[in-house]
Design a protein around this nucleic acid. Structure first.
Lengths: 132, 132
DNA sequence: TTATACTTGACAATTTTAGTCGGAAATGGT
DNA sequence: ACCATTTCCGACTAAAATTGTCAAGTATAA
């Protein structure tokens, strides 16, 4: 039940972008330095965020990244989903052995956890995190 | 944010034990067969559950395992904690890089997730899962 | 005393994580 | 036109965690 650095770094980077949103685009190098993350690694992560439509890139010299939407339109849930995939603790039903004799008595537990996590992350927006 | 098989198998095994609680101890082999889990692997998991005081072992021929407490005294949270450790998505503060320039603006997010997950798992007891 | 079952510890294949690296393409400034 | 800067893309890799397997030993009931 741990979050990988993908999700953690991703949210950190997005908060960073939100903080400097008014200044136009920010170079990846800046973010990497600000947050103490490897630039090469962050590249992979931000590529996913771009494909998910959360950030916008400006190529070339003096280029960089900026939020694709307003901070109050980007939830932490979107960020985490883009980087970590579905946040369910167990994906029952695939080829995952989750119910034999216990005949899926446990499935509702995983669903409740999933719902609880989603309720939290999709109700927190970047704008909530950068205020004060 | 996935649960490993440790936690999943552990809860399944405990539900199994709860189902057959009235029949006295159940052999590990039975549980492994019922749930489709490797017996050798389950051995490791149930050892942790025993050390956490959740199951009780009866050695010798016709031996096996049984719940150490009543099903309504054992929560899913206890089981998961015994097998997966703390369920926090991020453990900020260690040597984990979680806040630099974003100066821990994200920390409350991880805490809320942790709280939400705990609220769920510590409010569900084995007795809830085996009824009906 | 023997079969059953728990206990321990070492080992190992596979997958995931957490990056690294090199180069190509785009763009603004000189 | 050139050059420094920066994004973009794909392949590669070391380390760690996961998910087991296996062998040998210990305890106990029948």
């Amino acid at each position: 039940m741990k979050l990988s650095t993908k999700g953690r770094y991703g949210v950190m980077a997005m908060v960073n972008l939100a903080l400097y949103d008014h200044e136009g685009q920010v170079a990846l190098k800046q973010i990497a330095e600000h947050e103490g993350i490897s630039e090469s690694y962050l590249e992979q992560l931000i590529a996913k965020l771009r494909k998910a439509g959360l950030v916008q890139s400006i190529r070339g010299a003096q280029g960089g990244y900026k939020l694709a939407k307003s901070p109050n339109e980007i939830s932490v849930g979107e960020i985490l989903n883009a980087l970590e995939g579905i946040l369910a603790p167990v994906q029952c039903g695939d080829n995952v052995n989750c119910c034999h004799n216990s005949s899926c008595k446990v499935k509702p537990v995983w669903e409740k956890i999933h719902t609880a996590v989603n309720d939290v992350v999709f109700s927190i927006y970047l704008s909530d995190l950068i205020k004060e």
